[in-house]
Amino acid sequence: MTIRIRKYSWQLAPGHIRSIRQKVFVEEQKVPPELEWDDTDEIADHFLAVLPDNTPAGVARMFSTLNETGHIGRMAILPEFRGRGIGEALLQHLIMESAGQYQELKLSAQQHAIPFYQRAGFHVCSGPYDDAGIPHLDMRCFAPTLLAAQAQPHSGRPTPLLLGADTESWLFDSESHLIDLMDSMVGQASQRLWLYDRILDHDLYDRHRFRELVSGLARHHRLSEIRLLIHDDQPLVKRRHQLVELMRRLPSRIELKLVNNDYPHEDQPFILADREGIIYRHDFTQPSGFAGFADGGRVKLLSENFQRMWDTARSSLELRELPI
């Protein structure tokens, strides 16, 4: 069945958009009208899903408060049209619409709908909370452009980009796709992040969002462990780096060491997240390689190699002596 998606401003939106939300949220789910209708409608784009015979079936809205983040909300499918893939088609359209426009998508998901959003590439990023009497959790997607770039979206991937669940590798050959995969993986790590590279390249690692993700991991659990293993600290000495500043604020959670070249070391950089996530590059100078979100075998092997390098590595005296 071909579903068509139409986009409107609130001022020009047909009455079907309001009536579907009224029926699903206010009447079916008992959301108070004063919570359903808000000022955000005025600044949002509104999407209407229609069947081949032009019958309205579902709605959603998307808006932005920051240039890099799009917010999806008010997704609703009429009861008589559920189970036909209309919600999936609508959500996929929103992802395609946001590609190249937003670096991140966020939404507040009703607890029962979490698997629906996970199938589209979103992951949970909060604990449960109550909204209008309904349990919700926040979810986000750091890679709308990467997801939209797939020739056959989610083909063979029941839960794309989900740490511990997405069993197929992602190949990348551009810095933008590498960054999407890095942030998607690090953003889901709950305890461990081990990073090995020649330098802490500013384009890859000295980014506000990456710093916030690392900071969130460092503060998430008292046993969080973030290890940065590099060959050269001179670029960090010459120019302020957000990870270095974060490391100095959280010295018990984040540690940086320099590889001892007198001992065997890896010739390819990689990132390990918890026990199953890996991002592996073919060499230090190119943004090409693969990512695995449920690749425990490779993670175990590289963890052993990382530990051997870490045990023989030394601390950076120059970074330690830098003024705060």
Rank of each mutant, 00 (worst) to 15 (best):
G289L: 05
E276K: 10
H282Q: 12
A291Q: 05
Q234H: 13
H241A: 06
E88K: 15
R119I: 00
W170P: 02
F47L: 11
L91G: 11
L246N: 01
D274K: 03
V26E: 15
E168W: 02
I20F: 05
D131E: 15
R211I: 01
R209F: 08
G100M: 09
T285E: 14
A49E: 02
S169G: 01
K238C: 00
A313N: 04
D38W: 06
S19P: 00
M139P: 07
R198H: 15
E245G: 15
S98R: 05
T55L: 01
H221P: 00
I324N: 11
C141H: 07
D39Q: 12
K30E: 14
I86K: 10
R253C: 01
L78K: 05
R222G: 00
Y117A: 09
D183Y: 03
P115T: 11
Q29L: 14
Q103I: 00
L90A: 03
E80N: 05
E175R: 10
R240W: 00
R209A: 09
H282N: 15
M185L: 11
L90M: 13
L213V: 06
S155H: 13
F81N: 07
S215W: 02
L178I: 01
Q29W: 03
I5P: 09
H136Y: 13
Q11G: 08
R4A: 12
E304H: 13
T285M: 06
I278N: 02
F270I: 02
T69D: 03
I279S: 06
M62D: 02
H282W: 13
I278H: 04
Y205L: 04
L66K: 13
L272K: 02
L48V: 05
A49N: 07
D138R: 14
